[in-house]
Design a protein around this nucleic acid. Structure first.
Lengths: 222, 222
DNA sequence: GCATTGGTTGCGTGGCACGCATCTTGTGCG
DNA sequence: CGCACAAGATGCGTGCCACGCAACCAATGC
């Protein structure tokens, strides 16, 4: 990467960091008070330049998350080729999203602020394309013909989002990796957890997904 | 629902329809040319009123899709209580999204226009909350403690999105319901399709998801 | 019928995205 | 080493838009 590209990347990250930091400072309620001018100034750049990188404050705030998601495909490809898909995906995703344990304040801002909802979904869904390609390569399926890789990719990013929401729940002190493993195992086993005891309200047993319903691992329980 | 509420709903739908129609007319490239004033006029309402319902053109354009997604929970609850989860979900989702076969032009506008990406994701993800609740109720799990319902809900809406993308692929003439069933079955079986013949590039067999790998039904194949 | 609540509209304001022209800074080549 | 070129960064100007406010109008409930 030449100097130009590095500078560009650095600027992008500086703006993104500044935007997220300001958003956290002003709180989820004062998001409208985060002006473009502030972000640009905080990042040491002109407002016009900020606009060359992002076309909305929301996009800037979520930039870090988006960049991270973009690396998902590469993370999966880096797993050993013989590894079963579920293990490879779990290892790749857990590594990607917990290399440093995520900043709770930042993640909360991104995931729990209504105005950011669209951008946050976009940011997480950026992982879908690369992930689907990597899954197709790993399973020998054809991205154009088979829906399987794309569906799995979407399910996986969904699991990541759900893990984030759950992890941010007030009072949750688990490491993020643990929650992530639980949500991912739901995707791969496609089975509900065994309810402690069927509450059995007289009549109509609740439906069960196909197949048996033993519980390969602890999928749930806060 | 009293007259006021009905009028409100009608206005909302009128604005949404007008917005989507104009967007389709001007094409995905001229989206920026769809002015708020045009939408409002087309809906027979003042621009200020438009703004009381939606806070961006994108939101108005995706309103129909969002409203539909909101009905997902109710659709699932309407299924007989004893039905297995996968069948209930499939029936509910297929019914919801193919009651009238969706308008390809509209869906393409919503799903394939980059500027609408965030709003489209938001629109589809509106199904997640209600779906998760309905799944929790049906499987006897606890939405607060177990991640399973939320993960499944996210996976299902992901499958719907993937089905939409696949169905919009140029040259695809299948009914939407067929594609939808295929993507949903991926979620519930969590198995890749059986590749016709392992291309077997010397060495390293591709990883396989956990469990056996027979193919309960045709998951794929365009 | 009449007061009240809820919805619509017009106006004004602050902010923002983006095109264009200009200047600055890294790059490649002789 | 220096020069021509390319790619960014910046300033300025424009058109659009979201939204607060206050006035107006219509449905509702007594």
């Amino acid at each position: 990467m030449d100097l130009r590209a590095r500078n560009k990347q650095a600027t992008r990250e500086a703006i993104g960091r500044a935007a997220l930091r300001l958003a956290i400072e002003r709180g989820p309620h004062g998001l409208a008070l985060v002006r473009v001018h502030d972000i640009a100034t905080a990042a040491g750049v002109s407002p016009r330049t900020y606009n060359n990188y992002f076309s909305s404050r929301e996009e800037a705030i979520c930039a870090f998350q988006a960049d991270q998601s973009r690396r998902a495909g590469q993370a999966l490809r880096a797993r050993p080729a013989g590894e079963p898909l579920d293990q490879a995906v779990t290892a790749a995703v857990v590594g990607l999203y917990t290399d440093p344990e995520p900043d709770k304040a930042g993640l909360r801002m991104i995931m729990m602020t209504p105005e950011l909802e669209g951008e946050a979904l976009k940011a997480f869904s950026m992982a879908e394309g690369p992930l689907a390609e990597a899954i197709a390569a790993r399973t020998g399926t054809d991205l154009a013909r088979d829906v399987y890789p794309a569906v799995m990719a979407a399910a996986i990013t969904g699991a990541v989002r759900v893990a984030g929401r759950h992890w941010l729940e007030p009072g949750n002190t688990e490491p993020f990796a643990a929650v992530l493993r639980r949500t991912l195992s739901c995707v791969f086993s496609a089975k509900p957890p065994q309810p402690p005891q069927p509450p059995a309200p007289p009549g109509t047993p609740p439906g069960r997904p196909p197949g048996n319903s033993e519980r390969p691992e602890g999928n749930n329980a806060t």
